[in-house]
Design a protein around this nucleic acid. Structure first.
Lengths: 240, 240
DNA sequence: AAGTGGTCTAGACCACGGC
DNA sequence: CCGTGGTCTAGACCACTTC
C-alpha cells in the first residue's frame, strides 16, 4: 500500500498535521523535543524515510528545527504572517500592550485601481478598514485593508480593534491565506499620514503595499501600510 | 558505501552542483528539461531516492520546477540576486545604460561593528568598496560593500566599474553565494548620501543592509545600500 | 502506452551530540 | 556509549501528462 493510509492523504502529510496540531493545541511548545524519526516511524507505522519526509517538510516550513545528534524541536515562534519586526511589536510580544484602533470601517465603491489589484470588476463594492496601530502612548503604523465586499458579508461591522484581521478571516470565513506579494518603498509622510502617525510632514516612512492571496491563488486582501521609519525595519532572507 | 562518493560531498550535492553548472554554463536554459529522476540515478550511479533528493533540493531553491507526469525543468530566470527592482534598472535591462562608478576601494581596519556582522575578529582588515550606481544622467543608488581582506587578496584593485561584484567573486574567488539576510528601512538622507544621490537633505531614502552568506553559511559580504525612494521599490513574495 | 514525478518500504552505515 | 539526524539502496505501486 504505497500512498494513502486510511484516508485520502499521504502518510507524511498525516504525520505533519498531527504534529502541527500538537503545537497549536499547546501540547508542544517552542523548544520542546518532537518525537524522533524512529519514534515517529513506529508510532505511525511507516518507514523511517517517510517519517523523515514529514519532518523535513516541517523544517522547511520553519515549524521545527532539526539538530543532528540532538533531535527535532519545535521552532521558536515565527514572525507573524504579514508583518514587520518593530521594536514596539517586539515589546508587545513580550508583554507590553500594542493595540489597534479602527479609524474607518465601511463599504466603498468605484475604487477601480484597488479593484484591479484584487482582480475584480472596477465597480465592485469594497470593504475598507483603516486601523492605527499604537502602544499605550504613541502610534507607529497606519494600515488600510481592502477586501471584496461580497465575499465577506458583515465583516465591516465586526470588532477588529483587538485580535488579528487575518485570524478572523481564517476562523469566521474559512479563508486560507497562503502568500502575499509585497511592494516596499520609502516615502515622505504627507498630511494625513503625518498627523495620524504623529510625525513631521515629510518625515520618511516605510510604505508596504501587499496583495494577499488565498490558497487557490485568488487575491483576497489589498493592504497599504505606513510605518514610522525610526521604529521599523523589515527583515528578509533572500536566497541566491 | 553510504554517504560519500569519490570526494567528500554527499552524492545528492554532487548531482546538484553538476546541474547548477550546466545551467550557469548556458548548456541548460530556462524551460529546458533536466534529466529525469531515473535518468539522473543511472547517470550518477545512485538510487532513485538519492536523485530525487537532489532534485527536491534544487526545486526548493527555485532552480528547477518539477511537474508530475511531465518532467523537471529549469526554472524561469529569477529576480536578480541581491537587488531592487527599480525603474532605472528595469530600463537598464531593456537596453539603456546603467553603470556604476567606484568612489572608494580600499582596505580599512578597526571597524568593529562591521567585523562583528561578518563574524570575524574586530581588528580584521576589511575591503571597502563604495559604488554609485547611475544612469547616463543621474545617480540612483549608493552601495557600500565590506569584505574580509584576507579572503579576497587583490580585490580592492580589480576593476569593478562594470560587471557585478558578485560574478567576480564567483568566478575569480570561487565563492558560492547562497542567501542574504536583509534589513530594510526608510531613513532621511543625510549630508553625504544626499549629495551623492543628488536629492535634498532629509529626503526619504530606502536603506538596505545585507549580510550575504556563502554556501557553508559563512558571512562573506556586508552591504549597505541607499536608494532614491521615488525610483525604487522592493518586491517580495512572502509565504504563510 | 510510455514516461514522469509522488509516495513508500525495510533495511543499512555514518557523523554528531550529550551523557 | 547510545540515540539522534544525514545519507543511501534497490526495489515497489500510484497518479499524472503526453502522445
Amino acid at each position: 500500500m504505497p500512498s494513502n493510509g486510511h484516508n485520502g492523504l499521504p502518510a507524511y502529510q498525516r504525520i505533519q498535521t498531527a504534529i502541527r496540531h500538537r503545537i497549536t493545541n499547546g501540547e508542544l511548545k517552542p523548544g520542546d523535543s518532537v518525537a524522533s524519526e524512529r519514534e515517529l516511524a513506529r508510532l505511525h507505522s511507516v518507514s523511517l524515510m517517510t517519517a523523515r519526509h514529514a519532518l523535513a517538510g516541517l523544517e522547511q516550513e520553519g515549524v521545527v528545527e532539526r539538530r543532528r545528534g540532538a533531535g527535532t524541536f519545535v521552532a521558536p515562534p515565527r514572525i507573524h504572517f504579514n508583518k514587520l519586526m518593530s521594536y514596539t511589536e517586539q515589546m508587545a510580544s513580550r508583554g507590553l500592550s500594542a493595540a489597534s484602533k479602527v479609524i474607518t470601517s465601511k463599504e466603498i465603491e468605484g475604487e477601480d485601481e484597488i479593484a484591479a489589484r484584487l482582480m475584480i470588476p472596477a465597480t465592485s463594492k469594497l470593504i475598507k478598514v483603516e486601523r492605527l496601530r499604537h502602544t499605550s502612548d504613541e502610534p507607529f503604523a497606519l494600515e488600510t485593508c481592502y477586501l471584496p465586499a461580497d465575499k465577506f458579508p458583515g465583516l465591516a461591522s465586526e470588532p477588529l480593534g483587538r485580535g488579528s484581521l487575518f485570524s478572523t478571516l481564517e476562523r469566521d470565513y474559512e479563508v486560507q491565506l497562503t502568500y502575499a506579494d509585497e511592494e516596499v518603498d520609502a516615502t515622505a509622510a504627507e498630511n494625513r499620514v503625518a498627523q495620524l502617525l504623529q510625525v513631521p510632514r515629510g518625515a520618511p516612512v516605510m510604505r508596504i503595499r501587499q496583495v494577499i492571496y488565498s490558497s487557490n491563488a485568488k487575491p483576497i486582501i489589498y493592504v497599504v501600510g505606513f510605518y514610522r521609519a525610526e521604529r521599523h525595519s523589515l527583515f528578509i532572507r533572500r536566497f541566491r
